[in-house]
């Protein structure tokens, strides 16, 4: 039996890196007596695979991993047991069964959506909505990407699926975006903000953003984005 687990990550646990979140779940699965399948040998490993790594300092509404079970188990009961063994800040939101022939969804990740806010006192001095509107009208969105060895110019246009901004009741900006998260074309939310700041003749200050990943998507057969919890 193959299942997909969706969890959220909020609060102080956002400072735990991807590898440590994996270790955390490996131990949680043992605490919750989840009948996860193991590899053989002297140091057996659980057959689990995580989706996109989440950056340190970023919160999330929707992270995923898949696992194989040794035997059938009740999905609701598993979810309850897992949540009973969680630490504050991590919540298992759903467990769904995958067909046995489900392809590795982790490899078919196409996009991710984010909500971005500004940390206290770090709101931009310019009108974000207007900059976004103008940016989306550009025929190309060039961005100079720093790699270890050199700089390469890439076009972000194709990778930005949606981008908008609005102000909340307290007059604070919220930016919504859905961007490419595939292994070849992944776009970081901070990159989009950098480009917007540059357009406005400003520079994004460090540590200004409070980012929450809202969903991870795969593409269905017709090319539409579909949340990973529904894609299999």
């Amino acid at each position: 039996m193959k299942v997909r687990i969706q969890f959220s990550k909020h609060g102080v646990v956002k400072y735990i890196g991807h590898l440590d979140v994996m270790r955390y779940f490996q131990k949680a699965l043992r605490r919750a007596d989840i009948p996860v399948k193991y590899t053989g040998g002297f140091s057996p490993h659980q057959v689990i695979s995580f989706a996109q790594p989440l950056g340190v300092g970023v919160e999330s509404e929707s992270e995923y991993f898949d696992m194989e079970l040794e035997r059938e188990d009740d999905l609701q009961a598993m979810k309850e047991r897992l949540n009973a063994s969680m630490t504050d800040g991590i919540v298992v939101k759903a467990i769904v069964e995958l067909p046995d022939n489900a392809k590795n969804a982790m490899a078919s990740i196409a996009a991710a959506s984010y909500e971005v806010r500004f940390r206290e006192g770090m709101e931009p001095a310019f009108d974000l909505s207007a900059e976004i509107e103008a940016l989306l009208k550009q025929s190309t969105i060039p961005y100079v990407k720093q790699t270890k060895k050199n700089e390469i110019e890439v076009d972000l246009k194709q990778g930005i699926y949606t981008l908008s901004a609005e102000k909340d009741k307290k007059d604070h900006w919220i930016i919504y975006m859905t961007v490419d998260a595939s292994s070849g074309g992944n776009i970081k939310p901070s990159t989009v903000l950098e480009v917007l700041y540059k357009r406005a003749g400003d520079k994004l200050p460090p540590f200004a953003l409070a980012i929450t990943r809202m969903e991870i998507f795969a593409k269905d057969d017709s090319g539409h984005l579909m949340p990973l919890i529904q894609a299999n």
């Binding site: 102080v12 400072y15 890196g17 340190v56 300092g57």
Partner: peptide
């Protein structure tokens, strides 16, 4: 604060909240 935690090595050393 966030800026310090994002600047230092292994911020999880200082946040508590372990199982």
């Amino acid at each position: 604060d966030h800026e310090i935690l994002m600047t230092i090595e292994k911020p999880a050393r200082y946040i508590g909240g372990e199982v």
